[in-house]
Structure formats: C-alpha cells, structure tokens
C-alpha cells in the first residue's frame, strides 16, 4: 500500500484525532492485516506517535498485525460457550487444522483464533467462519465446518452466483408446503423435514437456496450417514425411485412450487441433486 493510498484513506477521515480506529479498520479491510510500514505511515501522516497507533492496533482483537489466511475461523470461548464445551471445539479445530489459536496454516488457507463472546450466547458453542455463524457446534461437526470453509461460504458469494435461487417445495404425497416460515437459513425460509437415522429422528432444516448446502439439524448427523426423510405433515417418507448419481444413495424427491421436482441425495455430505423443472417426473 503506497503512502498516497494511505493519504486518501486519511483524507476521508479528515485527519481528525478521533478517527484512528476507523482508519485502521479501512486499512485492514484492504490489506487483511496492518503491516508495520503502514502503521508507521499512519503515525507520520496523522501526527500521532507510533506508540499510540501501535497501542490501539494491539488493543483490539479485530486488528491483526500478522498476515491472515484466506478463511478466518473464530471459536468462541466466552463464558456461555465455555460451559457448553467451547474449549473442546477449539481443541478439535486446532487438531484438524494442525495449528494453535492465533496462527495461520502453512498454506495460508486458514487463520484460527479464539474470541471472548460473540454476543450469541444462546447459540453456544459458537464458531464463526468468514462471518457466518455456526450455532451449537459439536466436536464432530468441526470437520464439516472446515470443509465448508474450504469450499467457501458467505452470503455474498451465494447471492452473486446466478445459479443460486430460492425454491419453494412441498411434500410429494400430501402436497403440504415444506417451507418453514419461522426460521431463516441463508436469508430465506428453509425447507423443513423430519429425518431419521440410527434410531434418532428429529428436525432438519435445509436451505431453500438451490445450490446452497446449508443445513440446521436438531441432531448431529455424522458425515456419510444415509438418512430417511419424512414429511412433517403426513409423516410419509419422502422417497422416490432414483438413486444418487454420485454416491448411489436413494434420492429424496420434493415438488417445486410452479412445477417440477427437485431431488436431493439422502447421504449427509453428498452434494448430489437433480432439478427437473419440466414437470415430467411428476406425471
């Protein structure tokens, strides 16, 4: 970052004494961290001493003086998350990534840090990946979260992808809508079904964005489990004839409002799906 660029950032914050945090935030947004020479420049150009700038930069957790990886994983160790098992989650993330909190992976893919309360204590233990909150995380879900992070999450990405759009579906048997208006996933009401696997059954919310794999499950579904899905209204099993082209597990059909049918693979973690808007699958 050149001195001129810094000068333009400072110009926008009218060089006032009160704007230091805003200035540093802007620099961090552009750079991902606060490089040493930039801090020196800021001190020089604002007429502040370097100790003051450095003091502010080290005081706030949001600022980083070291380069950060592409994905930022923060695990909450606040009081509420702590008693609900936050330390175990942090340990698991450390183990999976092979790094200690506060450091980057060697390939600069991930930065892992622990934070003290994210203000979502009721959802604890909370893990935030690139700005997305994962509530009630269990150690077994960590692997999945890291996988998702690797593939890239974040609503901005989803919305800018033209192939992603919300669908509204209903049960193929009773034709009740499966949309759950009381919850939100990816910014839209999700699809609600009942799942059963290994003697447990409970609620599963699937993102209604076609192409998004965000889910919210009452129980933790181990990766690779093939689950049975049921309509929460008529309790009929949502099952069709097709098998997943990717992994061979049975596909789960649902009727798309406006005509057509969507089928999703019933294996946790498999991304196989078929969208048939022609409606031929119905007849």
């Amino acid at each position: 970052m050149s001195s001129a660029e810094i000068a333009s950032i400072l110009e926008r914050h009218n060089r006032g004494y009160g704007g230091l945090i805003a200035i540093l935030e802007e620099i961090q947004a552009q750079y991902g961290y606060l490089p040493q020479n930039v801090l020196q420049d800021v001190a020089e150009q604002t007429g502040r001493s370097l100790v003051d700038v450095y003091g502010v930069a080290t005081f706030y957790r949001a600022f980083s003086l070291k380069p950060r990886g592409r994905h930022l994983i923060s695990c909450c160790l606040g009081t509420a998350c702590h008693v609900r098992g936050g330390p175990g989650i942090a340990e698991e993330i450390s183990r999976q990534l092979g790094i200690q909190p506060g450091s980057n992976t060697d390939d600069m893919e991930f930065t892992f840090e622990t934070v003290n309360c994210l203000g979502a204590c009721a959802l604890g233990p909370v893990v935030v990946v690139d700005g997305r909150y994962f509530p009630k995380v269990k150690p077994s879900a960590v692997k999945d979260i890291i996988e998702q992070a690797r593939e890239g999450i974040g609503r901005i990405q989803i919305e800018s992808d033209a192939r992603v759009f919300p669908v509204e579906v209903s049960c193929a048997r009773c034709n009740h809508s499966l949309m759950d208006q009381r919850h939100v996933i990816d910014g839209y009401p999700p699809i609600r079904v009942t799942v059963a696997f290994n003697n447990t059954h409970g609620r599963l919310l699937l993102s209604s964005l076609y192409g998004s794999y965000s889910v919210d499950s009452e129980f933790d579904i181990p990766p690779n489990t093939v689950v049975n899905m049921f309509c929460p209204h008529c309790h009929a099993e949502l099952i069709g004839a097709a098998n997943c082209g990717e992994c061979g597990a049975p596909m789960v059909p649902m009727i798309v409002r406006g005509g057509g049918m969507v089928q999703i693979c019933s294996r946790k973690g498999c991304k196989g799906h078929i969208l048939d808007l022609g409606g031929s699958a119905l007849s």
Binding site: Q36, S49, L50, V51, V53, Y54, G55, F59, Y60
Partner: peptide, 15 residues
C-alpha cells in the same frame, strides 16, 4: 507505550 489488552497488556516499544 502500553500495548495489548487484559492479561496480555504490557509496556514496550512498537513492534
């Protein structure tokens, strides 16, 4: 000057 916060607070020169 002071740097860091909480239990990491300490006194030193920048960097």
């Amino acid at each position: 000057g002071f740097q860091g916060r909480g239990e990491n607070r300490r006194i030193g020169t920048p960097f």
